[in-house]
Structures are given as structure tokens and as C-alpha cells.
Simulated scan of single mutants.
Amino acid sequence: MRFWVNGEDVVEGAVEEGGRGALAAELLPVGRPSLLRATGEARPLELGEPECTGGCCGYLSVVVRRFGEVVQWSDWEVPYAPAPTPPEFHFEASQYDAEVARVEADLTWRAQP
């Protein structure tokens, strides 16, 4: 799973080449709300890991929280790499919620029996 903000792939820019984004099944569990949902409680979210695994060099993670009508992504942790830390992002909550709902409803990535 990749995350595009303002036309840029946030994972690719912060995880060493060969790394991976979060697995969709981890962020979009069946029968439960997505971990992408933002609430008033700050919550860390793992978005990717380097090729050598997160256990070795760390994970790309961000803290997600809602402040009224704004969703904030901040307090980034970046795997050991020369890449710069992504900036803090602010999203209009209604647009953010709509995009998360769209992703939750799109099940085309799941394996079909």
C-alpha cells in the first residue's frame, strides 16, 4: 500500500529503495474499522519498512490524530536511511474521512477464492 500526498509517494520518499509500504490487509482489516481512521486520540500508524525489515532498521510511522475539522499526520519516525523526514501534513477531515471510506469499500485488492 502506498500513500500519495500532494502528488508524492510518502513511503517511497522515506523508505530506502527496495522497501515496502504497509500491507493493505494490516491497515484494512475485514470487519473492523481501518487503522487509517483519525480520532481525537493520537495513534501511531506504520506505513512502511525498509528492505531489511522494520525489526532491523525501524519502520516508517506517523502519528495520526483529529483536531475538530482537521486530521494531522505528524511526529514521523523514519527507518535508518539518508531520506529526509516527511513534513507534517494537515487534511480537511471531511475529505480525509471520505477517502478512507472509499479505500475501505474497495475490496478489489483482496484475493478472490
Rank of each mutant, 00 (worst) to 15 (best):
Q112S: 13
W109A: 01
F3K: 11
L36D: 02
A25M: 09
R102L: 03
G19V: 04
V100P: 13
T39R: 08
G7A: 01
E46W: 11
L23P: 06
C56W: 03
C57Y: 07
L36W: 14
E104K: 11
E88S: 15
V78T: 13
R66M: 10
A98Q: 12
W73N: 04
E16P: 10
R43L: 00
G13V: 04
G54N: 09
G7P: 07
S94D: 15
E12T: 03
G40W: 07
D106W: 00
P33Y: 05
S74T: 12
A42W: 02
S61K: 15
S61E: 12
T53G: 02
E104V: 12
L107R: 09
E51G: 14
L28Y: 05
N6L: 14
A42V: 07
T39F: 04
F3R: 01
P29V: 01
E88F: 07
L60I: 05
M1L: 15
P113T: 06
G31Y: 00
S94T: 14
R110Q: 02
T39V: 07
V71N: 01
L23G: 11
E69G: 15
L28C: 10
E104C: 11
A38Q: 13
V11L: 10
A22Y: 01
V64R: 08
E41A: 14
E17W: 05
Y96Q: 05
Q112G: 11
E92K: 13
Q95N: 10
S74G: 01
Y80P: 03
L36K: 09
S94A: 14
N6W: 08
Y59N: 02
E92P: 12
G19E: 09
L107I: 10
R65T: 06
L35W: 09
E49A: 06
V70C: 12
V11F: 12
E69C: 06
G55I: 02
L35N: 07
E69T: 15
L27C: 06
A111R: 08
F91N: 12
L107S: 11
G18E: 00
P33R: 10
P87V: 06
T85H: 08
A14T: 04
R43S: 01
V78Q: 00
W109C: 00
P86Y: 08
